[in-house]
């Protein structure tokens, strides 16, 4: 058995004295340090104490404050609302995820660029224990025990990047993909469907797909997300609300 800390040992250690493990920890094992480093909590407190070693006076940078205020006062970018009913109605026969009935668009696709055939569309389904796929609606509540799989309809062939965003956080890239024109399930190379486990997620989670005709950098993709699309770059988003 590995002598290193894991979640179970960590919990046990809180309740029961284990001198061998304590000694091992005190020796400065890198694997165990890495486990402790990944434990949530205390980060902010450690930084607070570290920064107090050389305390800093309040800033007098009124310009920075003015910049911040300006940024706050910019109106929130209105989500674009598209009538995607027609596009959805046309979606490929046999597509696993697409609902047959057209949906009335009440802002289901924020950030869609263009409409109809020019639009990039992203939908998700929850993969059940036996592999059955249940389509989900944008914004739907989904259990954290579920895994998402995706279907996309792309207006063109080209590279794409998939991002995850928790709440209002900065989107973090999950993977890069190649898209073909038309409808397709997102796959990871030869490994089959690309799944995204919601384990450990909580609350609003957005998935962003950014596609282009030519390779783009992560920064370009993030810019496009911010701007709701860009020249030659299309963006699609879907949201789920992850429940315990």
């Amino acid at each position: 058995m590995s002598p290193h800390l894991d979640a179970a040992r960590w919990t046990a250690l809180q309740a029961t004295r284990d001198d061998a493990l304590l000694e091992h920890l005190a020796s400065g094992c890198e694997a165990c340090d890495a486990f402790l480093a990944a434990l949530p909590g205390a980060d902010g407190d450690i930084d607070r104490v570290l920064l107090s070693l050389a305390p800093r006076a309040p800033s007098t940078d009124e310009l920075a404050w003015a910049r911040f205020r300006r940024r706050q006062q910019q109106p929130a970018r209105r989500s674009l609302v598209f009538a995607v009913a027609a596009a959805l109605g046309l979606l490929v026969a046999g597509g696993l995820l697409w609902r047959a009935e057209p949906q009335v668009a009440v802002d289901p696709w924020t950030g869609l660029k263009g409409s109809g055939q020019d639009a990039l569309e992203l939908r998700a389904a929850v993969k059940g224990a036996r592999g059955a796929l249940t389509p989900i609606d944008d914004g739907q509540a989904v259990s954290s025990a579920a895994a998402l799989v995706f279907q996309v309809r792309s207006p063109m062939a080209g590279p794409a990047r998939l991002f995850i965003q928790r709440g209002d956080g900065v989107p973090v890239e999950l993977t890069q993909l190649g898209l073909v024109q038309g409808a397709q399930e997102l796959e990871r190379g030869d490994e089959g469907l690309l799944g995204f486990s919601l384990a450990g997620e909580r609350g609003p989670v957005s998935v962003w797909l950014v596609a282009a005709e030519v390779p783009m950098s992560v920064d370009t993709a993030l810019e496009a997300i911010k701007a709701g699309g860009d020249a030659g770059v299309v963006v699609a988003k879907l949201r789920v609300d992850v429940t315990p």
Binding site: A38, L39, G167, V172, D219
Partner: peptide, 23 residues
């Protein structure tokens, strides 16, 4: 965002904005 994809996943796994406080 600046790192390679591999590192991204690693970091991603460790993101802890709203995670339970285990400490």
């Amino acid at each position: 965002r600046k790192a390679s994809r591999h590192e991204v996943r690693e970091r991603y796994a460790q993101e802890q904005d709203d995670a339970a406080e285990l400490i």
